[in-house]
Design a protein around this nucleic acid. Structure first.
Length: 386
RNA sequence: GGGCAGAUGGUAGAGCGGUCAAUUACACCUGACUGUAAAUCAGGCGCCAUUCGGCUACGCAGGUUCGAAUCCUGCUCUGCCCA
């Protein structure tokens, strides 16, 4: 039994389970969604508000905070929790995703990754060791090893190269973490390993076995939702899952839509992070629960559509968020049309509440034994926009 | 009363004989977004047609020309200047 993860209830028909991840900044009830605060802020939302809505863990990014304001400054501030006034847990990405998303501007070698800074153009190298050092300075509760993965599609050889390198980097990161964690801003920080391998079963197996042999308390599954068909994504996740210890917590990096999250919970994933609710909110795409009789699951709307011009009803009258309780679709549309910052803020509030409420429903359904029904709802969910 | 400048698609504003259904911007319509260099990006935007294409258009009316938003004449309107 892991001492940092306690499984509370298992769904008898799938790999879904509820549990508690114990972190240095409190318990995190899984399955959980982590709002993304890349640069130490959930865009347009204060930490306190997020906490009030029941968020227990957020994700921040090593690469961005290293570049600005620098991990040294955040350490001086007493760590990222203090710096941004976030009382819950923090999960930090290692910078590995930037290797992928900024691929054209980045050079990768066994040593590490060399970036051209987006701020001043200067070049910097991130290594497995320095990524750990930076995350220790940030004082996050769960840190990730630096990893590498190709986009989709990639040949087996290309994927194998990144799996091998990710394992080598994981070993180095673990050594560095063991050496330094005790005297850092957050001595209780955990370091988790990352499983790569794309859609190749053998490579997922290799990665899962190698990484789990290194003794990490938890794991992240990466390299998914990078352009592969959805069924391939689920395949990659379940390959990785089948070679990882069942009693360890598993995070699915960068996923996903509400339906995908429910699908991945069924495969045994415990935590999720994704820019969808926050980014799409800023772009006016909002999530709405369907009421009985309207269809299954949820739909999305682009709130700036003309059809909402004179729609004086709440965005989602099943929603308990500040936006839905106080404003109409017509007003939201007007705020977006007028580029009023309040529109972005209300939309972000709503989408995050939608995701957080979804996770409450997921946890409750597992506890009450009705997860299968919920899963079916989202699997068959109405695809169309409202 | 005289002189000068101008009138172009929802708006502003290019174009000044053919390659113009007309640059561009804004507005408007629609879509995309998955470990955030994304309050970003993409497409559409005269009418008809699924495509080929057809039709109507650059103040109004005539004219020159194989051909006009582009040249000429008159008219209407607008702005500025002189009386």
């Amino acid at each position: 039994m892991s001492d940092i993860f306690q499984i509370i209830k298992k769904d008898p028909e799938s790999k879904a389970r509820t549990g508690i991840i114990k972190t240095a900044h409190g318990d995190v009830h899984t399955p959980v969604f982590l709002p993304i605060g890349t640069k130490g802020a959930i865009k347009s939302i204060a930490a306190e508000e997020l906490r009030f809505w029941g968020a227990e863990m957020i994700l921040a990014n090593t690469y961005h905070l290293w570049q600005r304001p620098s991990d040294a400054l955040i350490a001086k501030a007493g760590g990222l929790h203090k710096f941004m006034n976030w009382k819950g847990s923090i999960f930090t990405d290692s910078g590995g995703f930037q290797v992928f998303s900024l691929a054209k501007m980045v050079k990768v070698s066994d040593l590490g990754v060399t970036f051209q800074s987006d701020i001043d153009g200067s070049t910097h190298t991130l290594t497995p060791e320095s990524s750990v050092q930076i995350q220790l300075n940030l004082g996050s509760d769960i840190a990730l090893v630096l990893d590498e993965f190709p986009g989709f599609p990639a040949t087996a050889q290309q994927v194998k190269d990144t799996v091998d390198r990710t394992t080598m980097w994981a070993k180095r990161a673990a050594l560095e973490h063991n050496k330094l964690a005790g005297s850092s801003v957050n001595p209780g920080q955990m370091l988790w390993g990352i499983i790569q391998g794309s859609t190749y079963k053998k490579l997922r197996q290799q990665s899962a076995e190698e990484i789990s042999s290194l003794g990490f308390p938890g794991f992240a599954i990466g390299g998914v939702a990078v352009g592969e068909p959805e069924d391939k994504m689920y395949e990659g996740v379940s390959y990785a899952q089948s070679y990882l210890p069942e009693d360890a917590p598993k995070h699915l990096l960068g996923v996903g839509t509400p339906a995908q999250i429910v699908g991945a919970v069924a495969l045994g994933c415990d935590s999720f992070d994704c820019v969808i609710p926050t980014r799409e909110a800023r772009h006016g795409k909002l999530y709405i629960n369907l009421k009985p009789g309207e269809g299954k699951g949820y739909v999305t709307v682009n709130i700036d559509n003309e059809k909402f011009k004179e729609d004086f009803t709440p965005l989602d009258n099943t929603c308990n968020c500040y936006c839905c309780a106080n404003f109409t679709r017509a007003y939201l549309r007007h705020l977006f049309a007028s580029k009023e910052p309040l529109g972005i803020r209300l939309a972000t509030m709503h989408n995050l509440r939608f995701y957080l409420n979804l996770m409450v429903r997921v946890r409750q359904s597992i506890e009450s034994g009705s997860f299968g029904t919920l899963q079916k709802t989202y699997r068959d969910q109405t695809k169309n926009q409202a």
